[in-house]
Every structure is written in C-alpha cells, then in structure tokens.
Design a protein around this nucleic acid. Sequence first.
DNA 1: CACGTGACCGATT
DNA 2: AAATCGGCCACGT
Length: 109
Amino acid sequence: MKTNSEFRKNVLNIVSSIPKGTVTNYGTVATLAGSPNAARVVGGILRSLTIEENEIPWWRVISKSGRISINQNIGGIDKVVQKEKLESEGIEVSMNYKINMRKYSWIIS
DNA sequence: CACGTGACCGATT
DNA sequence: AAATCGGCCACGT
C-alpha cells in the first residue's frame, strides 16, 4: 500500500523538479521537504516507487559522498540501471559509481 | 499503539 | 582510504 503523507508528497515534488543532467543528494531533498534529518527516509520513499511513478527522476538522487547508493537489486532496479539512466542524460559515472559533484550538482535557484 | 527497518550522514576508529 | 558506530525519523507491518 502507498501512503501519501505530506513529507512523501514534498519529496516526490522536489525530486521531480531536479533538472535533467544534474544530481542532488538525499539529505538535500530531506531538508527541502521539511525534515533535515530524514535523509534515510527519502531513500526509503524512492525505493518504494512503483511502475506508475517511474516518471519521477529518482536516479538523480545520490549520496552526499557522490556515489550511487543502491547495493542490491530491488524490483529490477540496481546500481547499473541507475548508472545507465544518468549516463543517458549526459552525466559521467565512473566505473566505481562515483559522480563528479562539482560538475553535476543541482544548484537551487 | 510499538517496533524493526534502512537507496543516509557525520564523526570516529 | 575504508570500515564501524550512533543518531536520525517516516514508513511498513
């Protein structure tokens, strides 16, 4: 079942607004959504996205350290899938799943 | 209502 | 550089 709490709605709205070709981190999304210490929750929410919600650019959210932070396969989604999605919009991802934050960070205007 | 969970994070070994 | 450790808190059960 899918809940629709205020926080969850905020998270999905914010993630949807990340421009193509840029990335941000879970903590930033949590802060913008109104709960600065709920970065893990953001991960949980994105993890729970279903097929209908796959237009939400969840792949533009990575860890603060600049790495893709999926380490398992969840419903056909894994770090390789995320890497490919990022690369398909021009973001370079090294073979160890690291992204150059200086180059691709989403700057909030 | 109450716990266990974790696509996190920063500090500490 | 890499592993470990607490704190965190919405979500699922």
